[in-house]
Amino acid sequence: MSSTARDRIFARLHAARTTVSPHVPQGGNWQAPMLDKAQRIELLKTRMETVRSEVHVVSEAEWPAKLLEVLKAREPKTLTYGHDAWFGGTLRSKVKGKGMPKLVPYGENVEAFRDELFGIDVGITSTLGGIAENGTLIVWPTPQEPRLLSLVPTVHVALLKADAIYSTLAEAMREMRWAEGMPTNALLISGPSKTADIEMTLAFGVHGPKELIVLVLE
């Protein structure tokens, strides 16, 4: 049935060609401004904080200490992450001891891990970059760092390297060559999950993370 539906639809679409010769206006009129590195960090931080993300700009050496500080303030019981993520070793050596969450690597397929995952407090992920223009993180999940790490736990901590912050979405797409190969899932994330569906009153954490904490590594 659907193949004939397809044929009939395409027959009409092609026939429309004969009745209309459409005017197509010229594109390429707008682009967001290009910024230098300091401006990119600053704008990304401002934009993300506006939508209630928590952003800390720290040095490469400082981030584990900042993470411990973030965790201490929240006292989570469990933290999930990708075992083979670039920061996995650091995490295992630093996040331990009294008051620290139990580390639960996302090491199995979701079918086996799902029930446990829905009860975990913190998920930590790397990012591929950020976009200053709209204040977003670029996240392309991988076998090492699956998709639900940034969605299901109550708090999402993201590590962002300052050098990977682009000025605009268009620039990021170009520089990262999105058109040449999109991943299974590419995400832009600007803040914690939110809704304003009741009386336009903003509330956070309706389905996904209630908090997004970004550590920008300079």
């Binding site: 934009r47 939508v51 709209n134 204040g135 977003t136 999109m182 991943p183 299974t184 899932n185 590419a186 995400l187 832009l188 994330i189 600007s190 803040g191 914690p192 999950s193 939110k194 996904g208």
Partner: peptide, 12 residues
């Protein structure tokens, strides 16, 4: 909004 919380691009 400047952007939504999530822009979700699904390719496979």
């Amino acid at each position: 909004q400047l952007v939504t919380t999530y822009v979700n691009c699904i390719t496979s």
